[in-house]
Design a protein around this nucleic acid. Sequence first.
DNA 1: GGTTGTGAACGGATTCACAGCG
DNA 2: CGCTGTGAATCCGTTCACAACC
Lengths: 231, 231
Amino acid sequence: MAEIPTAAISRLVTYLRILEQLEAQDISRTSSSDLAERAGVSAFQVRKDLAYFGRFGTRGMGYTVPILKRELVRVLGLNQTWNVVIVGMGRLGQAIANYPGASDYQFQYVGLFDVSPAIVGRQVRNLTVQHMDDLRAFTSHNRVDMGFLAVPPDRAQDAAQMLVDAGVRGILNFAPVVIQPPVEATVQQEISDEWRGVIIENVDFLAGMKRLAFYILNPHLKDAPMTEDTE
Amino acid sequence: MAEIPTAAISRLVTYLRILEQLEAQDISRTSSSDLAERAGVSAFQVRKDLAYFGRFGTRGMGYTVPILKRELVRVLGLNQTWNVVIVGMGRLGQAIANYPGASDYQFQYVGLFDVSPAIVGRQVRNLTVQHMDDLRAFTSHNRVDMGFLAVPPDRAQDAAQMLVDAGVRGILNFAPVVIQPPVEATVQQEISDEWRGVIIENVDFLAGMKRLAFYILNPHLKDAPMTEDTE
DNA sequence: GGTTGTGAACGGATTCACAGCG
DNA sequence: CGCTGTGAATCCGTTCACAACC
């Protein structure tokens, strides 16, 4: 399991972003070494990462920006609509909802939820924040693919459970906690079926801050982000 | 270079968080398998990760929560004060500034910066947002260890350069771009000395969102986050 | 000539088995 | 006897060298 390195997927996202920039600058051709330099990795790495998914270039020529972009969009599953709910509409949830770029690839916020009376009912980006109690009813009437979790740490596990009960297929967890499938107390293997196949991805800013502190104190342990000779 | 896996550092941060929770629950002892279960990794992994930095347990007994916590705090460099400036005080910057937990380990926001007239002068968490033009003067009068970068993508590289010029030792980059040391146009190896040793850590929510999309479509490629048998 | 695509080699990270010690 | 700490073994990801091809 995991024949394609997870790190490769992160890099593909980076390559795609670079291709968007190239396209915006009307640059129509690129190469593995050009991409490598812009992405801060080796050209070998670029070619290997792309090779996991197909043959997108022309030998002797390089890659055509729009073609490679289209292929990466397809590979990453960004050529389809993703319906997203955000759970937790405090400052962080609002920042996420308003952050530009999510809609570029059909990520659509279809529902916003919170429990605080001060927040429920508020208008954010032409959506009205609903109460968490209404999440279940909402998802039974609307397709929801992902949930973004922006609640306080002590609420995260419960909120994640509600998202899974509501049938989301993936959770982007912003809370600094490890989200766990429940360890069903009495009956073996029962509740956890809902969790089977639910993908959890973490975006943890406090952890990033602490890693940064560590690497400032131990710079030699950091694999330098490659700049000069790319190959 | 990189005798200690970078992934190990991320896991140490997780262990530390778990130890805080245990302490809050007045649990004073734990073990590698207990930590492993809570962190979603194997017990081997926990022991190996800790072994990179010392011997913190007692054979036959396990670990004492406060002791292991203290040691991890020391290892991660969290037993000292870190002075932080935030560059970019839009919604995201404000959410970061107000996010609880940063001050737990002496991360102190000492300066907030932006370029927008609508934002400069505003009061956030008993600090007044200053103009980017004043960053240099500010850092010459105040020690600043890290910069958090929460500006729009097209501003990120420039803002990073300003932070480096201002002498920060690390950047936590929230913008969806690769921050690069400058490729000094004319003279070889000149400007990039300032960049030598500057650590860059990324927290990219748009990338997380796209990885999530990919893994929802290709769940078998995701290394399952370990739950059941921990060893 | 130039650049991609890829099997093989390498190195680093995880897993394992067990020695060490309370 | 139990759980840690760790050298050895394995596995996986990155690097490499070069064959394939425009």
